[in-house]
């Protein structure tokens, strides 16, 4: 099954379970959780069902295109359901079968992996789902988002698509995956991985990035003052991404690290408070 087929099948599967099928957010994110559909959607009392693809950029994971599974940009598929159905584990396993996986042939484990994001002031309880000991998904019952205790809680299923595709196509390296019947994943992505790795680890202009961080932080704060939570959140996301570049560049000492994270966290919390404060907007309704 081609990489692009996997995405289409997951869209279909979750559409069948009543999810809104959305698109990747067009601001850099480190994980699907940062997409506003999850960030704002999990807040508040209203039901939520969404599914979307999210390219996730993690500068420190870059390996110059040389590691078979560690990537600076990998593709996450994310399904979020609030409240969680009681058969959600089975539903998740069914989605793997829908991708053509014969689970009886593999070793599937739900291994404890509680999730926490200090930048989002969010945490949840759950597992990494391992297929033959390779982590292919993160399965999390969110308990808190942006410092707010969630009621009802949401469940988030995050699929690591490259890894799942490797199993399905039986290849040893993500770069050997078929994107479609003509183009290999490597053809599409290897050079980008190489260039971004050089950029993130060696070339990004530390001072300029630090300035950009401060500018985005100010823009976020200014938008919050104007009561514009969605634009504000975009700038919080940018801060998070810029921080990740600085981190990969080893430009942040351990002491500074904490304070950078705290600055982003304050922005995220303020966005959440602004959103809940508007009273009753349901940004991603189910009906």
């Amino acid at each position: 099954m081609d990489f692009q087929d996997i995405v289409l099948r997951l869209h279909n599967f979750w559409r069948g379970h009543g999810c809104l099928i959305l698109h990747p957010y067009d601001v850099e994110t480190g994980a699907g959780t940062f997409n506003p559909a999850t960030f704002f959607g999990t807040l508040g009392p209203d039901a939520l069902r969404v599914g979307y693809l999210e390219p996730s950029r993690r500068p420190t994971d870059g390996r110059y295109g040389k590691n078979p599974i560690r990537l600076r940009l990998h593709h996450q598929y994310q399904a979020v359901l609030k409240p969680p159905p009681s058969n959600i584990q089975q539903m998740y396993l069914d989605s793997l079968e829908a991708l053509g996986m014969n689970l009886a042939e593999h070793d599937v484990k739900f291994a404890e992996d509680d999730w926490e994001s200090p930048t989002l002031a969010a945490w949840g309880v759950g597992w990494q789902v391992c297929l033959d000991e390779m982590e292919i998904s993160q399965f999390t019952y969110f308990q808190q988002m942006a410092g707010v205790s969630l009621d009802p809680v949401s469940v988030e299923l995050t699929y690591g698509l490259e890894r799942i595709a490797m199993v399905l196509q039986g290849v040893e390296s993500a770069y050997d995956l078929r994107w479609n019947d003509r183009i290999a994943y490597g053809t599409l992505w290897r050079e980008k991985e190489r260039q971004f790795s050089i950029y993130n680890f060696e070339s990004a202009a530390v001072e300029r990035i630090q300035k950009m961080f401060t500018l985005c932080e100010e823009e976020c704060q200014a938008s919050l003052v104007a009561g514009l939570v969605f634009p504000a959140y975009d700038y919080a996301l940018k801060c998070s991404h810029l921080f990740n570049i600085l981190d990969a560049r080893h430009a942040i000492s351990i002491t500074e690290r904490e304070s950078f994270i705290a600055r982003i966290r304050e922005l995220a919390k303020a966005c959440a408070q602004g959103y809940l404060g508007t009273g009753g907007i349901d940004a991603y309704p189910t009906t």
Binding site: N67, D132, E133, E172
Partner: peptide, 12 residues
């Protein structure tokens, strides 16, 4: 199949 999967993970 599982063995091949384990070895792939260890390799990476």
């Amino acid at each position: 199949i599982v063995r091949a999967g384990y070895e792939r993970v260890v390799q990476a």
